[in-house]
């Protein structure tokens, strides 16, 4: 709020030909502060991964940024030339991916993969980079790093590979780490370990983290603030406490209700949000959630709600919560 390291303003991303673009992100607004962990939640297709990829300028070649801005420490990234981007990626902004099984090159030793950004960004010699890579492996909790550094990825377990990914991403001590569902492919005990590791690293390096997930457990565990996304927009923005205790947006409420809890009765049927996420080529007008919304109002299918402050540090884009609804109706 006071010192954002990354600000995404009204970001629009479209797929397909210039003449018939399909909008995937339709004005995303979010910001993350130095040393803060921002959770990005939503169903598949809500645009959370795409926002992260856009922030790294790693969009697939069929997609392009059609509007808005991405500001990292005052530098505009949306129009940044490739050379400058290469100097930023892995150095000041890093990313880890969902699938640790595929995110490491199978024919390259893990040590060489960790050393690569060190050599590029910090200009270390082969020997110095190797020494740093061993330190990195050690710091992410891989036992026997002197031996492990010469391993190929197939010689490691999924959890270890994700640790290697984190070691690689944090090798140059970046200021921002984007983690795209880093624990989805891991089993629960390993998930907890990886989240602990991320939190420890966040403290140690004063690291800002954007964590993308559809798991509220992960959010509760690690995030300071949460942005809920739907249909290519942020629909609710809240501190992690407020999101669980004072949920505002009908979609967030629906998501939370659909999360199983330990106190739940055994025969209890898990509530679901009716319908499915609309396809990006077929987004309803107005608020994209209105066809599935239990609190639909007449204006919802005509006007797009904007994020409005409903409580300190909590903003919601919903006509049913809007203080301006009297004027709009």
């Amino acid at each position: 709020m006071n010192n954002p390291i990354l600000t995404i303003h009204d970001l629009k991303v479209a797929f397909g030909p210039q003449t018939a673009p399909v909008d995937a992100l339709r004005g995303v607004n979010l910001s993350v502060n130095r040393g803060e962990c921002l959770g990005l939640v939503g169903e598949s297709g809500s645009g959370k991964s795409l926002s992260a990829l856009a922030a790294m300028r790693l969009l697939p070649s069929a997609a392009r940024i059609t509007g808005g801005s991405i500001t990292f420490e005052g530098r505009e990234m949306a129009t940044m030339p490739r050379k400058e981007l290469e100097g930023l990626r892995g150095n000041e902004i890093s990313m880890i991916f969902q699938e640790p099984m595929t995110a490491l090159n199978p024919v390259m030793r893990v040590g060489d993969q960790i050393a690569a950004p060190l050599r590029k960004h910090l200009g270390l010699s082969k020997k110095a980079a190797r020494a740093r890579a061993i330190e990195q492996l050690d710091s992410v909790g891989i036992p026997d790093p002197h031996r492990r550094i010469d391993n190929f990825p197939h010689e490691m377990s999924g959890g270890m590979r994700q640790r290697v990914m984190i070691a690689m991403a944090l090798a140059c001590e970046p200021k921002l780490l984007i983690a795209d569902e880093p624990t989805t492919a891991l089993d629960v005990t390993i998930q907890a370990q990886i989240l602990d590791l991320l939190r420890a690293k966040q403290k140690e390096l004063d690291l800002a983290i954007i964590i993308i997930t559809h798991d509220f457990g992960v959010v509760a565990e690690i995030a300071d603030r949460v942005n809920v996304m739907y249909g290519g927009r942020v629909v609710e923005e809240a501190g992690v406490g407020a999101l669980f205790d004072n949920t505002q947006h009908p979609y967030s409420i629906g998501l939370l209700n659909a999360t199983p809890t330990i106190e739940m009765e055994q025969q209890h049927r898990l509530p679901a949000i009716g319908g499915a996420v609309p396809h990006i080529s077929d987004m309803p007008a107005g608020c994209s959630f209105h066809p599935r919304c239990p609190e639909r109002r007449p204006e919802c299918d005509r006007l797009v709600p904007q994020l409005e402050t409903v409580a300190p540090h909590q903003r919601v884009a919903c006509w049913a919560r809007s203080t301006a609804d009297e004027q709009a109706a």
Binding site: L58, L88, F97, A103, N105, M108, P117, K120
Partner: peptide
């Protein structure tokens, strides 16, 4: 994933092709 990961680590295109794609 490792090609995206390499790009995300700031590896230039020619080097990504040479070290990650070709092998």
């Amino acid at each position: 994933g490792y090609v995206d990961a390499a790009i995300a680590m700031g590896r230039p295109s020619y080097s990504t092709i040479l070290r990650h794609v070709l092998p």
